[in-house]
C-alpha cells in the first residue's frame, strides 16, 4: 500500500501538478524532511493538496499527511478509501458550531496528534475550508484561521510550524468548478515558526507570516 501511494504520488501527482500549475516553488529547502512537523498553508482549491504533495522531496513523501475534513472526504466509501490510502489524509472532524457536544472538542484533532506522535509531517489548512472570498473578513485574501494548528503546536512544542503561501490555485480549480485549467501557481515556503506558548499570539504570528509570504508572490490579476 505504501509503495502504491509512493508510485501514485511520483508518477501521477507530480507530473499532473507540474502540468496544471508549473509548481513554481520558492524556499523548497525550508520544507521539513522529517516529522513531527506541521505545514500550515492557505486554502483555495483541491489543487493545494495536490501541489503540496508534489513539491516534497521523494524521501520525505511517505511522511507527508494532509489533514482533510472527514465530513467531506470520508462520506463516500470510494473517495474515502482513496483519500485515506492514496492521498494519506489525516481526517479532521469538522463540527459546526452548536453541533459540538462538550468534551468532544479535544478529540477532533486526535488523528492529527497521532500522526505527529508517529513522526509524520502534517499539512493543515488553518482556514478550515477552501476560501473563495466569502470568509475573507479582513479583506486580505485569507479567511479567518482556526486555532486547531495552535493546539497541535502546543501539544508538540518541538515540531516546527512551516507557513506556506500558495498563490493562484483558486484559479486552476475554484471551489464549485469541476474542470481544472492550467495556470501557474507560486508556492512560497516561509521560515519555520516555533510554538510561542500562547494560542492567540501564535495564531497572529502565523497569519502575519502567511501574509508576508503573500506579499512576495507574483501579482494575481484576476478580476
Amino acid at each position: 500500500m505504501r509503495w502504491l501511494r509512493f508510485l501514485l504520488l511520483i508518477l501521477v501527482a507530480r507530473p499532473l501538478a507540474l502540468f496544471m500549475t508549473g509548481a513554481d516553488v520558492t524556499g523548497r529547502e525550508r520544507l521539513p524532511l522529517k516529522g513531527p512537523a506541521i505545514v500550515a498553508a492557505n486554502h483555495s482549491s483541491h489543487v493545494d493538496t495536490l501541489l503540496l504533495l508534489a513539491i516534497f522531496p521523494s524521501r520525505a513523501l511517505a511522511r507527508v499527511r494532509p489533514a482533510a475534513a472527514a465530513d467531506y472526504f470520508l462520506k463516500d466509501p470510494v473517495i474515502g478509501w482513496f483519500s485515506r490510502h492514496a492521498i494519506g489524509i489525516v481526517p479532521v472532524a469538522r463540527l459546526k458550531a452548536g453541533q459540538r457536544p462538550s468534551g468532544v472538542d479535544e478529540d477532533v484533532l486526535a488523528p492529527a496528534r497521532a500522526a505527529l506522535a508517529a513522526g509524520d509531517i502534517v499539512v493543515v489548512f488553518p482556514e478550515g475550508t477552501r476560501g473563495d472570498g466569502a470568509n475573507d473578513k479582513a479583506g486580505d485574501g485569507m479567511g479567518q484561521l482556526k486555532s486547531g494548528v495552535a493546539r497541535l503546536a502546543e501539544a508538540f512544542p518541538d515540531a516546527p510550524v512551516i507557513p506556506v503561501w500558495i498563490q493562484g490555485a483558486g484559479r486552476v480549480l475554484p471551489k464549485g468548478e469541476t474542470i481544472p485549467v492550467p495556470l501557474n501557481c507560486a508556492v512560497l515556503v516561509g521560515e519555520p515558526l516555533a510554538w510561542s506558548g500562547e494560542r492567540p499570539a501564535f495564531m497572529a504570528k502565523l497569519r502575519a507570516a502567511l501574509l508576508a509570504l503573500k506579499e512576495q508572490a507574483p501579482p494575481l490579476r484576476w478580476s
Binding site: G22, G168, R171, E177, P182, N184, P218, P219, R221, S223
Partner: peptide
C-alpha cells in the same frame, strides 16, 4: 501558461483559457 497566469484575466474567462490551450 506563464503569459496567461500573469496577464489580467477575468474570472469568467476560464473556458476561454482552456480554449486557448
Amino acid at each position: 501558461r506563464e503569459f496567461l497566469s500573469l496577464a489580467p484575466i477575468r474570472r469568467e474567462d476560464r473556458p476561454a483559457i482552456l480554449a486557448a490551450y
